[in-house]
Amino acid sequence: MLSSLGTKSVAVRTPDDLAGIDAIILPGGESTTISMLLESSEIFGSLNQMIGEGLPVLGTCAGMILLANEVSDGRRDQKSFEAIDISVRRNSFGRQIASFESDLKVKGLEESFRAVFIRAPGVEKVGDSVEILATVDSDEQTGVPVLCRSGPILVSSFHPELTADSRIHQIFLSLIK
């Protein structure tokens, strides 16, 4: 996806991999596992400092959870970068059988975006500093924010990396100075 947009990417597995990056993507996965591995790989501290100093971050699904100021239904020992003033609930739309896809109207995009939600987190509260770029209506909830931005931090409940559509990644790249 990134190389098709003319951007070079590296996989970050150790603190050394953080050297020289202009932005970072925290992808989907299990936030409990990722949080634990960020600590054991000794990445958390340095990355936390870089985010504090304004490193642009795209967090999708688990990545959104890791960036949120407040997390409910998580594990107590789960770490967060607390980089965006939102409260999220893990698995807010239910288990895998309730996972879904939907067309989203995204602020700034002409055509709708087909978004894939996998055991997705839901945003329950947003602070004044946060701009809501898209919301979703599910069977049980309406108008749930699913794409939010605060400064150089962009978070989504869904997985733009699971579709061929690169427009969310383009929005993110436009946030990098």
Partner: peptide, 20 residues
């Protein structure tokens, strides 16, 4: 901001968890 064409159980949604 609004959404449309809500669908569960698609192949993309089902393999999506495997990807994660």
């Amino acid at each position: 901001t609004q959404s449309d064409n809500y669908e569960i159980g698609t192949f993309r949604v089902k393999r999506g968890l495997a990807d994660m």
